[in-house]
Structure formats: C-alpha cells, structure tokens
Write a protein that binds this DNA or RNA. Sequence first.
DNA 1: ATCAGTATGATTGTATACAATTATACCAGG
DNA 2: CCTGGTATAATTGTATACAATCATACTGAT
Lengths: 235, 235
Amino acid sequence: MSDYDIRKTVNDKYSLRGRVFQKIREDILSGKYKEHEELKEVAIGEELGVSRTPVREAFRQLELEGLIQIIPNKGAYVTGITAKDVKDIYMIRSLLEGLCARMATEKMTEEQLEEMEENIYLAEFHAGKGHMDQMAELDNRFHDILYEACDSKMLEHLLRDFHQYVLRVRQKTLSTNTRGRASNNEHRQIMEAIKAKDAKKAEQLANQHMINAYDNIVKNGLFEIYGEENGQERG
Amino acid sequence: MSDYDIRKTVNDKYSLRGRVFQKIREDILSGKYKEHEELKEVAIGEELGVSRTPVREAFRQLELEGLIQIIPNKGAYVTGITAKDVKDIYMIRSLLEGLCARMATEKMTEEQLEEMEENIYLAEFHAGKGHMDQMAELDNRFHDILYEACDSKMLEHLLRDFHQYVLRVRQKTLSTNTRGRASNNEHRQIMEAIKAKDAKKAEQLANQHMINAYDNIVKNGLFEIYGEENGQERG
DNA sequence: ATCAGTATGATTGTATACAATTATACCAGG
DNA sequence: CCTGGTATAATTGTATACAATCATACTGAT
C-alpha cells in the first residue's frame, strides 16, 4: 500500500474532468489550439458534451501545467513556448536527466535494463526503416524507463512534465532522420554505462544527450512551429 | 506588454478561488493540516464562507502543486513529504540553484545586486541578534532575487515551487543558530562571485550552498516534523 | 458471535442558475 | 470622421441543486 503517485489522479481517464483535461492538453500539444488562442468554457463543454464545471476544473490544472494562462474574468489563453523557454528547458533537463541517470545506475532493476536493451534494439530497426512514429514512441519509453528507474518520485514527476512540455519540438526533432539514429546510439551508450555501474559516466552521457538534442533543434531551425514573434524577450 | 508570468493568476488574491488556494496551501505548509489528513470541500468552504465550487478548483491546483492527493470519488488528502523527498529535492535544487546562479551572473541588474548586498548586510545584523523570523524572511528574499535575476521564467517558476515545498524544513533549519550565519556567509560568497562576473564559481558556490543546507538538516535530525513512518520506501 | 446484505448517510461529481465582470455595438455630440 | 458614453451581449465567477459513488450501521440468518 501507499505506493501512490502524487499525480496519478490527473490521468484519471474515467471522470469527465480527467477526460477533458487530457483532451485539451492533447489538442494544445498537437497544435489544434494555437498559441494565444482563447479557450471558452461553453464551447469546449459543448464540443465534449459536458457542462462548464469539469471544463473549468480542467482549465485550472492546465494552467498549473503551464499550457494555458487564465486571466481572471477574461479568459483562458494557450500559452506559447518561446524559443528561450525551449532553451531553458533543455538546459534544465540536461542537468536533471544527468542526475536521473546517475541515480538510476544504482537503482535499476534487471527487468528495466532488459526493457531498455530491447527498446534500443527495436529503435535501431525502425531507424533503418524510417518509421518515425515508432521512433518517437520508443524515445518516449526509453526516457520513461530511466525516470522510473531513478526511484525518485519528485525527479520522475519533474522530468515527465518537461518531456511533455517540449513534445512538439521533440517530435519534429526525431523526424530529422539522422538525429533519430544518433539519439538512439546515445541511448545505447547511456545504457552501457548503467550496465557497467558507472554512474558518473551515465550522468555525463545523459547530460550530453540533452545538449546534443538541443543543438540539433537549433541547427535545424525548428523553432518556426512556435510562431514568429518568439525568442529572447527582455535583455 | 506580454511580460505575463505563467502562474501569476494563481496568486490572484482577489478571486475566492485564489484566496482559498493560498489559504489552504499556507495551512498545509504551516502544519495546520497534517499529513494524510482528509480535506472536505464543505468543511473548508464553510470555514472560509464560500461554496464548494472555488474550493474544488483550489483543490485541483493544490493537487498539481503536489500538496494534496485527490482520489476520485473519495477525497483529498494532504500528501506527506518523506525524508527521501527532501533529499531528492535538495539534490535537484543543488543543480538548479547552481544553474540559476550561473545564468544570473550574466543577467543581474545593478538594482538586484544592490538589493542582494543590502539583504546580506541586514541578515548579518539579525543573525547577531538572533532574530530568526527576519533571517528566514531574508533568506527567502535572497533566493527570490537570484530566481528573478536568472531571467528564465521556467527556472524561476521551478525553483520557487521547490522553495515553497521545503518551507517547513527550511524554517527549522535556519533556526539552528549557527546555520543562519553560515548560510548568510555563503550568500555573500555567491554574491561576490556574481559581482566579479565569475559564473562558474557562482554556480559551484550555489551548488555547495544547497548541499550544506541539506547536510545541516541531516546532521540536526530535523526530519521528525514529517512524522515517523517516512524515509526510504522501496529499495 | 460473525458475516452477508441492504439501507442510510456522507461526500464527491456534474449540471444548472444567477451574479459580476468584461467586451461589443450603437448612438450622440463634437 | 472621430470620440465618448451607454446599453446590450458574451463570458467568467460563484452558489446551489441533483446524481453518483462510497462509507457506515443496522438487520437477519447461520
């Protein structure tokens, strides 16, 4: 008992609120609702066949997830991720994925390690075939395993959030063919380091893995999906 | 325009929901509502003289803050922070405060630097007098300045959350007389490094600052406030 | 006495009604 | 044509009513 997860209930798929929450999040991340677009309670309620109440509660959650901004008495607006946000997130993730890999080195179970190996093997196959959807899915899963393995619900929670947050960027990134394979090779190196119980190396590799991912984003100029006016603001 | 903050509206003190949110959070952090205690919508609503609606919305936010856990159709329960959580948070904060200090070295304004110097000067005074409340307040403010100065709303947001989260521990920590002064000296060193534009040193010092803070917590066995059954769980 | 089953009460989930606030459109005056 | 103000509509904020779910206590049979 008591192995509950702080935010399992958010994924509660069987309450209206939970479904509304997931649906809106999906629609924001997929780009259906665009940056600065206003979300209206009744409209979304009608679309999903529910009243305003569950929609409002979902809004409050989405706000804390950082996906929308609620201006009191005015409305809910989809928040844009600026280029600077993405950069910051990758800098933060670089450190935290490193920490996660270090911690995972001590805590990882045999089953987790095996799933990782399988994951990398499969990804190699799909990389060859150019199956980008599967690559994205496997990349998700690789990092999930790492998050679970670090045995820290705080860190796991945090990294999962960021992972979600940059979803739009990430999917584009992996679809630049060469990066998919390079990324998987980095996964392999991280896995090897963990297998060899070399925590320091695992940390350093995971660190670099994020830096490489970000560099790739910059190099390929993938920021256009975040609109034009973004980037550095003050300063 | 458009210098909005993702979660400014949460601090919206002028809506019922905002006030309820802040009140409950305060009551949890101050220890009024204890770990695993059940929060009932009507009871809290009556206490604050509002209906269930704003209370429910506040609950949804508190859940995402990680302060309560909502079990569908059952209730809302105050989540405990385990000793392991505290440890994890300090490990994470160590890295992120370091990153923050590094970034702040480039971005800090003259005004911010001056407020920091004043802060440290004042803290020295209060440390001598044993004014623990003021020390806690100044410590809060020191870190806030740093968070603002890093010029990253993502990082600022994150660090503020963690800062809040370990509030209970922190206040106890600073009241162990010697740590208050030592902590302030570390603040001074960080400030000096930033002043000298030595980003690497600032990072390393902020890093160590967190490790020292955590060591102090462990050394003084300040975990009892989180109840008995806590600590490492699986593993 | 113990257990199953049911009935009752308490609590949360959702919908709707009403109040407050904000946006929009229209009109009068310059 | 532009400006300011007022009326109206649209939208959010809050309260309340009703439905669904869960906890508890009681009853009756074994």
